[in-house]
Simulated scan of single mutants.
Amino acid sequence: MQKAIKGLVVMSAELEDVFHSMMVGKVPSMWAAKSYPSLKPLGSYVSDLIARIQFFKEWIFSGIPTVFWISGFYFTQSFLTGVTQNYARRYKIPIDHLGFEFTVMNSENSMSKRPDTGAYVRGLFMEGARWSREDKVIAESHSKILYDTMPIIWLKPGDESNFTEAQTYVCPVYKTSARRGTLSTTGHSTNYVLSIDLPINVTQNHWINRGVALLCQLDD
């Protein structure tokens, strides 16, 4: 880009798009084509990218984290598959029989040790409602607060035939607030991640009408 501005190389259409995008604080389309989904402006996008690199750097040099930053994965489904594969190998259960149970923990950011099975994850935001720390259920949003940061969630793999039914809202998790994506070559959505069962004390339709969902990242 600097060479193109100085006239040392040809200013192609792609470089011109990068230049104009940077001028208005937008992620260049050339970058977005190779990037994870993001609706953040350029400055926040770069900060988020650095945070992701730091997360994996600490994982490499300090060992497996106690709590995984689920928002930091490029292909989140591979992480979820890895969690179920570890459980399947440990207990000799076919992976096709496995699913997740979910427990919202009291801690917001850290845990003293890793769980015996499954994984702790953080970094999710609830849109359309909030998580009541007192009642441990989904509750109405506070006035003028659009998003609520979720506490740590325990993803517990297990045989789906042994799961007990409870009054829950099947809350979809998306990478961005766009809530839409396309099917990749792996058969997974580029935006939808999974659905998390969260306890409720009203009907599920109430929260469906509210459009409640969990997001891996915000737009700012």
Rank of each mutant, 00 (worst) to 15 (best):
L146T: 08
E140Y: 06
I153K: 00
Y36H: 06
S29Y: 09
K156N: 05
Q77F: 15
S21T: 05
S35I: 07
S44W: 00
P151A: 14
L49S: 06
E127C: 15
V46C: 13
K92D: 12
W59V: 09
S110R: 05
L183D: 03
S21D: 04
M11A: 09
F61L: 08
G72Q: 03
L8W: 03
F102E: 02
V137R: 04
F61G: 00
D17L: 08
W31S: 05
M23I: 13
L98W: 00
A129W: 03
F163N: 03
G158R: 02
G72A: 15
L155V: 07
H206Y: 15
M1V: 10
F125N: 08
K3L: 13
H97F: 10
T66Y: 01
D159N: 13
R114D: 01
K175H: 02
Y36S: 09
P94T: 12
K113F: 06
V67K: 00
T103H: 03
M30H: 01
R179T: 09
A178N: 02
A178M: 04
S177H: 04
Q54D: 12
H97G: 03
W69A: 04
A33G: 03
Y174P: 01
A88E: 06
F55C: 10
H142C: 07
E58S: 14
W207G: 06
T149M: 08
I152Y: 07
C171E: 01
S184W: 09
Q167D: 11
Q2P: 15
P41L: 02
R179F: 08
L198M: 11
S107F: 01
Q217M: 13
G82V: 11
G211K: 02
F68Q: 02
D48N: 11
L49Y: 02
T103A: 04
G99H: 08
K113S: 13
S112W: 04
L146N: 05
P41T: 02
K34C: 15
A139M: 03
A129H: 07
Y36C: 00
T84F: 03
K144H: 12
I196N: 00
L155D: 04
V173D: 05
V46P: 01
V24D: 01
K57Y: 15
T186R: 06
I50N: 08
V137A: 06
Y147C: 11
I64H: 08
T168A: 10
D135L: 13
G123V: 10
D96I: 10
S184H: 09
I138P: 15
N209K: 13
T103L: 05
T190N: 12
S141M: 08
G25N: 06
M30L: 07
R52E: 09
H97Y: 11
Q2D: 12
V202A: 08
T164L: 14
R114S: 14
S184M: 14
